[in-house]
Each structure stands twice: as structure tokens, then as C-alpha cells.
Amino acid sequence: MVSMKIQFLGSGVAIPWPGRVQSGIAVETENGRLLLFDCGAGVLQRLFESGRDPRDVDAIILTHLHLDHVADVLPLLKSRWLCEKSDCVIYGPHGTRDWLDGLIGLYPYLQGRFDLCVTELTPGRQITLDGSDCRLSCAAGVHSVPSLGYRLEDGGKIMVYAGDTQPCDSLMELAQGADVLIHECSFPLGFDVDCHTTPEMLEPYLDKLDVGKLYLTHLYPQMQGREQEALEYLRSRFKGEVHIASDLLEIDP
């Protein structure tokens, strides 16, 4: 068995940026299960580029239902069906089932083609993923729509993915003790925004944040050219490692 492996498939947002597609993270568990956290536009292609087959995905785990996090869900399901694999396990926030039913309902030729197991999660819930010893728990983020952050515990390693959010107590508590925290950093220092994150918005949490590595993702084009500035700011205030994610970057917790 190998330990948890994490690969960023998409580290960008809804606005195109060379080299970055929309949000998606592949996590391979200790027993070889493949979990896909979010599935924005471009993630299906990145999954292929990572050397994986769409049929390899054991579960899709959605933080929220904005297009840049879910646009490739149906293309992924169709790709699996075309390769004669119709089943899929999907986790997401409240509304995931209705959203998916409505989306599939727009395409008569896809109706009845999929065997989906959709589970809607609420903040504070913890589950054990089927067929593994992984524990998945979630907490609410602060975003313009209901959004969840996830904590995955597997093989003695802990990863937390915050999804889209501004920094908040619930997600920082979820992250305590994690080996890796993947947190959005949509905009650079000095940018006025809510429901998203800038480096200085993270600062109040850094002193008490017990996390080994912090990876910044979900970068808007406004961050281009200011990545090093963000890294230096956060590294001077955080005792752990700080890195900026890039598409197809592989990391070990």
C-alpha cells in the first residue's frame, strides 16, 4: 500500500488563465481509491493528462455548485458511460441531487443511463467512505452559496480542502492537526473582497493554525505576477510551509 497522494488537476477559476483550468483535486487513498474533489471545466482533460482513466474515479466530492467547480461533472459521467461504466458515487452540499437531476433532465439521451448514488452532506457530519477506512468530515464555509470544506483522514494522513470561502472559524477548526490545508487565495494583497480570500485575510488565523503545509489554490488572474508577494507575506507569518498550487502538481501530505 502507498500513503495518500494528492494531485491538483485544476487550480484556476471561471476566468481563463494560461496553464490553469478550473477547480479539481485528485486524491489517491492508501488502498488505491481515487477521490475527485470538485470537477470544474477542464478537469476531465487534466484527469486524462494525469495518466488516469475517467472510470478510475471512485467518488466525486463537491464543495459547492458554482460552475467552475462542477462544469465537468456531467461530461465525466458521460465519458464513464461511453466506456461502459454507468455507476458513480457523488457527495455534495444540500441541493446536489436536484441540481444533478435537473442537469441530466436537459439531455433526454442521457436519462436512465447512469446509476448514481448521491449523498448530500451537512456541516458537522462525518462519514466513512464505502470500501475504505477513509473518514470524511465537513464544515461550512463563507461563500455566496452554501459551500462545504472537507477533511479527509486516511492512513495516518490528514488533508483539508476548504473549497471557496473567506477564512472562517469553522474551517480553521476543521483544519487543526492536518498535514495539508488546501485553501483558496483568489486575490492578492490589498484587494477588497468577501466570500473569497486574500493573504491578509488568512493572517489572523495563522498563529494558532496547527497545519504542516498550506497550499494556495483558486487563483484569479489578478494574482498573476503577485504570487511571490503572497508567499513572502504568508511565510513570514506562518510556521509551516506555504506553496502555490499549479495544475498537475503532485504532493505528499
Rank of each mutant, 00 (worst) to 15 (best):
residue 198 T to E: 08
residue 195 C to A: 14
residue 161 Y to G: 04
residue 198 T to V: 03
residue 162 A to D: 01
residue 148 L to A: 11
residue 167 P to C: 12
residue 207 D to S: 13
residue 182 I to L: 13
residue 198 T to R: 00
residue 183 H to V: 01
residue 155 G to K: 05
residue 192 D to W: 07
residue 147 S to E: 00
residue 163 G to R: 00
residue 154 D to A: 07
residue 147 S to W: 00
residue 206 L to C: 06
residue 187 F to E: 15
residue 172 M to Y: 12
residue 148 L to P: 08
residue 159 M to S: 05
residue 205 Y to I: 08
residue 196 H to G: 04
residue 194 D to T: 10
residue 154 D to W: 07
residue 206 L to E: 11
residue 201 M to L: 02
residue 198 T to D: 06
residue 153 E to N: 06
residue 148 L to T: 10
residue 180 V to M: 15
residue 203 E to A: 10
residue 161 Y to F: 14
residue 143 H to R: 07
residue 160 V to S: 05
residue 207 D to V: 09
residue 175 A to Q: 08
residue 189 L to P: 06
residue 158 I to W: 01
residue 164 D to F: 04
residue 189 L to K: 11
residue 181 L to S: 06
residue 193 V to H: 00
residue 204 P to A: 12
residue 184 E to D: 06
residue 203 E to R: 08
residue 177 G to H: 04
residue 179 D to T: 09
residue 209 L to H: 10
residue 148 L to Q: 09
residue 172 M to R: 03
residue 175 A to V: 09
residue 163 G to P: 00
residue 203 E to M: 10
residue 205 Y to C: 07
residue 152 L to G: 06
residue 186 S to V: 08
residue 144 S to L: 11
residue 153 E to Q: 13
residue 206 L to M: 13
residue 166 Q to E: 06
residue 190 G to H: 11
residue 143 H to I: 03
residue 190 G to E: 10
residue 160 V to K: 01
residue 176 Q to I: 02
residue 203 E to D: 11
residue 171 L to E: 03
residue 152 L to W: 05
residue 182 I to Y: 00
residue 173 E to Q: 13
residue 167 P to N: 13
residue 209 L to E: 09
residue 179 D to Y: 12
residue 165 T to F: 04
residue 189 L to T: 14
residue 148 L to W: 10
residue 178 A to Y: 08
residue 191 F to Q: 11
residue 171 L to G: 07
residue 166 Q to D: 00
